[in-house]
Design a protein around this nucleic acid. Sequence first.
DNA 1: GATGAATGAGGTTTCATTCAT
DNA 2: CATGAATGAAACCTCATTCAT
Lengths: 231, 231, 231, 231
Amino acid sequence: MKDGELITSHSVQQHETLRKRDPERTRAEILAVSTEVFAAQGYSGARVDEIADRTRTTKRMIYYYFGSKEQLYLAVLKKAYSGIREAERAIQVCSLEPTEAIRQLAELTYDHHVRNSDFIRLVMIENIHRGVFIRQIESMREIVEPAVGMLDEILTRGQNEGVFRHDVDAFDVHLLISAYCVFQVANQYTFGYLFGRDLHAAPLSGHLRSMLGDVVVSWLLAPEGTARPVT
Amino acid sequence: MKDGELITSHSVQQHETLRKRDPERTRAEILAVSTEVFAAQGYSGARVDEIADRTRTTKRMIYYYFGSKEQLYLAVLKKAYSGIREAERAIQVCSLEPTEAIRQLAELTYDHHVRNSDFIRLVMIENIHRGVFIRQIESMREIVEPAVGMLDEILTRGQNEGVFRHDVDAFDVHLLISAYCVFQVANQYTFGYLFGRDLHAAPLSGHLRSMLGDVVVSWLLAPEGTARPVT
Amino acid sequence: MKDGELITSHSVQQHETLRKRDPERTRAEILAVSTEVFAAQGYSGARVDEIADRTRTTKRMIYYYFGSKEQLYLAVLKKAYSGIREAERAIQVCSLEPTEAIRQLAELTYDHHVRNSDFIRLVMIENIHRGVFIRQIESMREIVEPAVGMLDEILTRGQNEGVFRHDVDAFDVHLLISAYCVFQVANQYTFGYLFGRDLHAAPLSGHLRSMLGDVVVSWLLAPEGTARPVT
Amino acid sequence: MKDGELITSHSVQQHETLRKRDPERTRAEILAVSTEVFAAQGYSGARVDEIADRTRTTKRMIYYYFGSKEQLYLAVLKKAYSGIREAERAIQVCSLEPTEAIRQLAELTYDHHVRNSDFIRLVMIENIHRGVFIRQIESMREIVEPAVGMLDEILTRGQNEGVFRHDVDAFDVHLLISAYCVFQVANQYTFGYLFGRDLHAAPLSGHLRSMLGDVVVSWLLAPEGTARPVT
DNA sequence: GATGAATGAGGTTTCATTCAT
DNA sequence: CATGAATGAAACCTCATTCAT
């Protein structure tokens, strides 16, 4: 039975206060709760009823503001990406020397993913849906652009200084860091269970964090083609 | 493709004849179709009706053989993991010298993930559900054990030969390789879309494949602590 | 018939007009029809579809208001008991002398059972289910309390006056009366059939009614131990 | 999911011994198990699958021997009544003087009901179904005849001796005793729960047993019309 | 702008029963 | 006699959504 529905004629009316006449607030609340619910249950698994129940408004309001479950999910997705990119923009490592800058960038990105597991989950969900929703959001690609900007700057600097290998670009590094960071959040349940370890508990969590730095840096420092034996 | 592996798309639509009274076959067909449908739509999104429609049996038979949607999903999950691990066991790189063995292992794993995207999707789905299903499958942990066995062997050999760094174990390497391989399948839609590239089309696909080898090998070859500056 | 009592057959088929947007009415109608259907078919035998069809609402509404078949049954059970006890409270025999009060109480209870066969049937059904449902209804025991109150009062009066035997309490008398009254309703089909008599047709019905009075009164008037021979 | 169905391809095969080629035995076993299941769950609530599972045969055999769920229930009902009447015939109280004979008959009947609660439950179930099944069983009325025979004999003797009142016949006494005995079994769950007492635990059980004797005897010994005041 | 009541379509599951050997 | 496999029909329940005020 859906919680949002009437069961007895005397259903509970909680937090009646602070309720009416603040459209912005209502909208924001719906969005916040929806983010949690979609992240927790997936698109199909999420229930409009549950979202409504965890809100101080009603199901009807969700349709009033967002029109449909799909459009609500779209709004959630867009907001999640914006928030993430905004946070990424806050990372400042430009003043450091390339090697250390890259390491810090990797490790801060790592922390960032750990803190934003709901976002990671939304991305997973979106991929389960083969990206059909994200493609409907205009401006999505602009939102994401700054992501590799700083990376590109550091990388070029390191390459110009002759420290970093040249057969690598910002996209590659970004992919490597992303893969690692996303994985330890996205796959924590299966991987953690199968190996009997909690990826986010000390000391493993610390080890995994610095390991990423090691991986990225040693890769960038390694001479091109060195590792690849003469075939 | 070996028997233990996932049955891939459209493998069951053949011969409408020879239909009834072959329980093993019926069961297997339901399982194969279910794998596709669950992988495609997720647990909540999958419809028992759809599975039935894509089968030569009826919805009723699904319940006859598996009891419930959940138990069906469990069977799919178990079979998928078994198939994957069996395939992993087929990788033979022991005769190579450590560096090349590791590189080949990484790249074969990469290929393997590309070919078995349905499995990756099931793992994602399972993680969306926080691993509640996988934990119900006894023997799951045994299934997974061989995964790091060979890796451990290669790594130890390389460390004994003084080629590989010592502050790394099989679990670490496995995690790095898994993260990279899973990511390029799991996140292909969002990542590919946001950067306007198809991760699985040449020449990018080839680059990404060999890049993994580079990353892993240069990391293992790098002296411990070298990359980390004195703080 | 009073408001609190069971709504009897065909009481809801009237006026098809004035249909929507009267939740109390809708709820009450579902409850009334459900009472009939559960009483007629038992818990397992009752069909939510049938209840819906005999209502001016839809099956969906039943779930909207009651959540599940079980909760609907629980509501029916609770309402049935409340109605009965309310009716019992209406019996007024306190002004009569004890012997006659008891006789009237017994005979009114008898009439009452004849009129409320749906309630008796629900009680039978509940006993078939070993009381699992009734135990889930809080306040059930409070509802029933007044049942023996008046009886206790009459009995004590009669005992103090030296008319009634002393080795008997209100619970005993209530059980005897209940057994007799319930039986002639509950077992009317098998008993009536096996003996080829309709328990509710004159003159048998009248005989059985006054016979209960005789039984109870002669028992209460008999000296203690008299009937029991010296062993 | 029904237990009787195939779930894994390797379902359990218990007690394979003592199984085949004994039709009488098989039939009897099905009947015995069915009695328990119908008595426990009612007609609609009983599951053919459950009956099959609690048997050493299969569901298919039930249909082989009995044709349908209804016919199986009919067989159960018939057997239950036969068994009960046979047991009743065993009661021998003819040699006692009328008052004591009646008391013993009542109390032995009481014991008998306590011991045969499954039969009582079947009777309840049959009454819930308004006796539609019992009417289909020919010879049912003959089965039941001896029930009042002995009672009639005792009663006549007592009346001839001038001990028992004359406005009462064997049917009346049988009804009173039946009502009391059936009730304490049939309604034990609701009545016991509502009054917080277990009708079948000492000392209440003993009290209720002898109370029935008191009730019947004092009623029969009371002069006609005495209790009924002049109106 | 806001809301409780209502709902059609479709979801999962279960039932007694029969088929084919 | 015996059986595992199969099944159509219908059961209970849930979904996102809209109505009427």
